[in-house]
Computed example of a mutant assay.
Amino acid sequence: MTRAAVSAAAATACLAFATPAWASSTIPLHESQKGSTAAGFQTQDCDDERFDDLAANQDGWHFVLPGKDGGNFETLTLTFNDGTNDVEIKVPDATDAYPDYFYSTGGQSPRTIHAYVFTPAGWTLVDGSATISGEDEFFNLSHTCPGTPSSQSPSPSPSPSSSESPTPSASPSASVSPSTSESPSTSESPTGGTSVTPSSSVGGGTEGGLPLTGVAATSIALTGLVLIGGGVVLMTLRRRRDKITFTS
């Protein structure tokens, strides 16, 4: 009986000391790493072999537990913003919407302290929490591998549409400027100018002084002839009158 009691007490004591190591706890993402983007994170390492399956339009994220005695990752909950909405991702993801996995260290006592997540490129890490076996203060974002957002691929495609500049470059239509440059029609001004000079030379224009002078000389000459003729007639009549003698 004594031996049985001692054995039971020893087993209970062992379980009591072991229980804290088996308990799970929830820890947050390090505060300084909230709001990070893969492209803007200070540590980037695309040579990480666990990013080998990363697509060109995906960002790779590597999270790690910092403590040596903090236990293992059990679950990981991350919140990202896709530019419009917040998206929550759980690791492991039962829907397999985003590639992810836990990675364990080697050695005699392996620990699952690494977690990898692939998201569409350009997302922002807003917040995160992890359930671990054991206790720790926080977990870290170790490094990233940025991809190219697929939204940028259509952006070059508008450049062909912007190549519609040929159509707005209605420089052909602007070449109607020759038509608008009705300088030929305005060149009728020379024709009008030449028409003015002959009309003035004919005397029907403003320089009609010469024709008027000719007409005045003719009328004066005729008037003079009439006066001379009248004078001759008067002198003849007077001479005849002077030749008449009266006799009684």
Rank of each mutant, 00 (worst) to 15 (best):
P211Q: 15
P92R: 01
S7A: 15
Y116E: 01
S162A: 11
L237I: 05
V117T: 02
V202F: 11
G40H: 12
S36W: 01
H62G: 04
N57C: 06
T186R: 15
F102D: 03
T84N: 11
P149Y: 03
P156M: 13
V232P: 04
S151Y: 08
V196D: 11
V117C: 02
S155V: 07
L15E: 15
W61D: 00
S155L: 07
S171M: 13
S185Q: 15
T12L: 09
T43N: 12
F118L: 05
S163W: 06
T95P: 03
T245V: 10
G193P: 05
R240Q: 09
S104I: 08
G67A: 15
G107Y: 02
F102K: 02
P92D: 04
N85M: 12
K90W: 03
R240E: 06
A130G: 02
L141A: 00
S109F: 14
E137G: 15
A121R: 00
I132K: 00
Q42T: 10
G122E: 00
F80R: 00
R3K: 12
V91F: 01
F63L: 03
T218G: 06
V117F: 01
R238G: 11
A23N: 12
A18D: 05
G192T: 00
S7T: 11
T206L: 03
S104V: 09
A39D: 05
G203A: 04
I132E: 00
D86I: 05
S183H: 12
G134L: 04
P154Q: 07
P184Y: 07
T223M: 14
G83M: 02
S153P: 06
K90G: 04
G208C: 15
T119M: 04
F73E: 00
V6Y: 12
E188G: 07
N140H: 08
S185L: 15
P166R: 11
F246I: 08
G122V: 00
D53H: 13
P110N: 07
G229D: 00
I113E: 02
A115V: 01
S171P: 07
A94W: 02
S25E: 03
A13V: 12
R241H: 06
S181G: 14
S133E: 14
H30Y: 13
T119G: 01
P92E: 04
G224W: 05
S155E: 07
S133H: 15
F80N: 01
S219A: 14
S7I: 12
G40S: 13
G134Q: 05
A115E: 01
F17S: 08
E49K: 10
V226M: 12
F51N: 02
S24C: 10
G203L: 03
P184R: 10
A97V: 07
A11Y: 15
D53E: 14
G83N: 02
